[in-house]
């Protein structure tokens, strides 16, 4: 594998960039295609769209942003942001999803 090199002099070959680019375009077409699936699959469609977006973001981060070839420290910081984002989403949405479990007088 390419790890172990000095992080800063690591030059990613153009071929890798092109492959990632093609993969990104294919995934983009897949997202749009999935949105036009017939029938009502709100949840399924959302899951597909977000999964594809996550895969695309990971590809960009790993290859275009060189995290795959970087030190553990860069890995740590790159993942910290997304981890904290999840904390924010889960705890905030947790409130909204459980708000009506207990019927409250005066609320419909």
């Amino acid at each position: 594998m390419t790890n172990g090199h000095d992080t800063h002099s690591h030059i990613v070959p153009i071929k890798v960039y092109l492959l990632v680019y093609v993969a990104l375009l294919v995934l983009l077409v897949a997202t749009v295609g999935a949105a036009y699936l017939p029938g009502h699959h709100t949840l399924l469609n959302n899951v597909i769209a977000l999964t594809i977006a996550v895969i695309k973001a990971v590809l960009v981060i790993l290859y275009f942003m060189h995290v795959r070839y970087s030190t553990r420290l860069t890995w740590l910081w790159a993942s910290a942001g997304f981890f904290w984002l999840l904390i924010m989403f889960i705890l905030t949405l947790g409130d909204y999803f459980t708000r009506h479990w207990v019927p409250v007088l005066g609320w419909e």
Binding site: W84, L91, G94, D95, Y96, F97, T98, R99, W101, V102
Partner: peptide, 22 residues
């Protein structure tokens, strides 16, 4: 410290369950 913020909102319309977790 990032997981406790809802304790400022116990008396708002926040969900009771979220309140318990916070």
């Amino acid at each position: 410290g990032f997981l406790v913020w809802g304790h400022h909102m116990f008396t708002t319309g926040q969900s009771v369950y979220a309140g318990m977790v916070f």
